[in-house]
Design a protein around this nucleic acid. Sequence first.
DNA 1: GATTTCACGTA
DNA 2: CGTACGTGAAATCC
Length: 570
Amino acid sequence: MAHADLVASLREAGVNRGDLVALVVTPALGYGLAAAGRTWAVPGVAAEVGRADEALRPRWVTWSGQAAARLAADGVRLATGWDIAAAHRLLFGGWRADPGWAWARIRRLDTDAMPASGPPDLFGMDEGDGTDPVAPDGHLRPAWTGGGWADRPDRIARWAGLALTTAELQREALSGLEDRPMALPTVRAESTAELLCAELSADGLPMDRAVAERVLTSLIGPRPRSEAEAASLRAARDAEVLRHLPAGVTADLRSPVQLRTLLGRLGMDVPDTRAERLRALRDAHPIVGALLEWRKAERIATTYGYAWLDQHLGADGRLRGAWTGSDGAAGRMTASAGLHNMPAALRPAVVAAEGHVFVRADLGQIEPRVLAAVTGDPALTAATRDDDLYAPVAAQLGVDRPTAKVAVLGAMYGQTTGHGAQALRRLSTAYPVAMAYLDSADRAGQAGRDLRTYGGRLIVLTAAEPRSSSRAAAYGRYARNAMIQGAAAELFKVWAVTVRARCASLGARIVLCLHDELLVHCPGEQAQAVARLVDDCLREAAGRWAPGCGVRFISDTAIVRSWSDAKHGT
DNA sequence: GATTTCACGTA
DNA sequence: CGTACGTGAAATCC
């Protein structure tokens, strides 16, 4: 089939807006597509798929974010997707989501004998009936899951066909989930978030190298010109700490064991040498303060130093890492290259490109608001009408705001210590529906019963084997936290993909997602429009994620040149 | 050489 | 005795 006919072919096959169309991408031979029981092998013209997306707006089925990554590399940004790995993670939990595994689980095949997803077994494509991707036992053949489909057009098309049927089975399973009516829309958002992740990985975060180097210089000194110079700088930093020791006494500061022994010899008995522990001993010995300073610099030097910059900051001024749409637990996005844990000191280096700005928006008090939405607790829902949710909660409980905040957070995170006990009882009286929900999650965690978040994500707890009451309590905390964190992640992703869709025409691109914060990069003249759109998108997202819940979500939105720039309001 | 532990940054 | 992630170095396992 000539690629120019793609739109016509899909039309002829009866593809309408929102219909599932499977798409597999191989760099060498092009694309494979499947829809409505038909398959195509398409020579690799990325733009043609882009045109089909605009003309027909189907929902593109992919096995994983890899396809989206290849498309993004070709400059193609699809509107919506059905990501089999994302749907699988939501349905079944856990990290593993390769095609063979997703295929087996949705068909309830026996997975006990399945090999771990290791290096693919590439022989066997031609042995026996190896041309059939499905083995007699119903599993996908390793030769196919390992990429053996990518070398011939007919196999590429066949692979797309398998993706389509897998996605259809997933859709069916999601529709049948008891008490989780939002599972299907959630998977759609999660899938499109995978497209966003591919773009985040490809685009990177704008960063000013000169500013970054200045920050590093101020924290750890100038860039060492050689390995020897690096070593002597390191030694000089160590000496600042070691000079507090009596003559003849020394230790490797990088070794927690040696450090603990050393502190013991100086009369400070500590169970570990964490910063928080050391801070309490600041006045006990002059070495402690020096040690804390050393730790701070050492962290920057080893993890976020010049090597980090060289490794992840491209010549185009973009800091790139790998993004995944969902972690293995509650479903938050993850990013590598330090994008999610960059020290605040380096944020001034995150600067918009020439003529551009960032619209920086973060959700306020997202977790208690999400709790109100997923439980429908009327009193807590009423509290979300306030910009500061903790103010009405404090009034309701008859305590001050800090106490109210600690109590609410403690209830969501399972904190049992401190003087939260009494406030907790009052919480149960004031917000019985919300608190019962958390209690029930806690009990399920302790008992090892699986849970599903509001959007249907499976929280696996059956594997948990508590051998002590403290262990059981830990699973209880994990469970109640996962229900909140997971639901918050679901709302966040609906928000993010909405922003992605609505802002694209303004030349705006999301460049960072940080659990409850969006950083959108856009031309300066569009800043106001994008900022308004981001806020509108939050209302739209909340309305689609939890229709009619009545919960108010708020965003602190600001136009800034640098990520570190102060936000208005607070 | 691979895996676990410790520590610490972010939310 | 709030959880999640990614990371780097040391410690430990095999």
